[in-house]
Amino acid sequence: MNITLKIWRQKNEHAKGKFVTYKLDDVSKEMTFLEMLDYLNEKLIKEGNDPVAFDSDCREGICGMCGLYINGRPNGPKKGVTACQLSMSVFKDGDTITVEPWRAKAFPVIKDLIVNRNAFDKIIQVGGYISVTTGSAPEANSIPVKKENAERAFDSGICIGCGACVAACKNASAMLFIGAKVSQLALLPQGRVEAKERVKTMVAKMDELGFGNCSNTGACEAECPKEIKLTNIARLNREFYKANLS
C-alpha cells in the first residue's frame, strides 16, 4: 500500500512543533501501526534524518505506553485495541493518516508523539495501592470474595494507564482512569480498608494536576482499549461522597 503520513514533529517540550508529511510505499497490510512507524524511521535514519519519537514497550497491548491519536481517534479506527495492536489492514491504499500525540494540559509533549504521563503516576502515588506488610503471599482463600465483586474488580483492574480516555475526552478528564483505579480496590476487602482516604486523595490530586471535569460524554468508554465502563465513574462518584459524608 501507498500511505501518506502527516505526523506531529516537536523537538522538545518547549519547541513549537508542526506537522510533517511523509510518503511511504510498500506498506504491508500485515504490519502493525508501530511496525509501520519503525519502517518509516528506518527510512528516515538511512536518509540521515531524525526518526519520529514514539513510545512503546510490550507491543502486545498490556503496558499502555504506545498511545497515539490516529485520524482523530485515540489508537485509530478500531475499537478495543492499543496502537501496537492496530493492524495496517484497517487502512486502504492511498490513505492519508494524521498522527498526533495525546493532547491534554496535564500530559505535556516531550518529543514528537511522546507525552509525559507522570500525572497518572502522581495520582497512583497518593492512594492507588494497598498498604501491606511484605512477605510471602497469604493463602488466597483466607479472605472470601464474592464472585461478582471479584469479576467487577478484575474488569476495572485491567486498565493499563494508557491515557486514551484523557486523550479522547473533550474535557481531557481523567475520571475513567481514576474510576477504574478506585473501583478495582474498593470492590475487594483488602482495598476497603483504605478506601475512604484513597478516593479523597486521588480525586484531589486529579483536580490539582489540571485534568478537566467529567461531562458524562462517554468518549472515554468508547475509546478505552480495555473497554473500561462508565459505571466505574458512577462508582467513583459514589465512593467519593460516601467517603466525605460518613
Binding site: 482523530g72 498526533e100 493532547r103 485534568f211 478537566g212
Partner: peptide, 9 residues
Amino acid sequence: LARGKQYKI
C-alpha cells in the same frame, strides 16, 4: 483549558 493545544482532527 484542560485540553491545552487543540487536535488538528
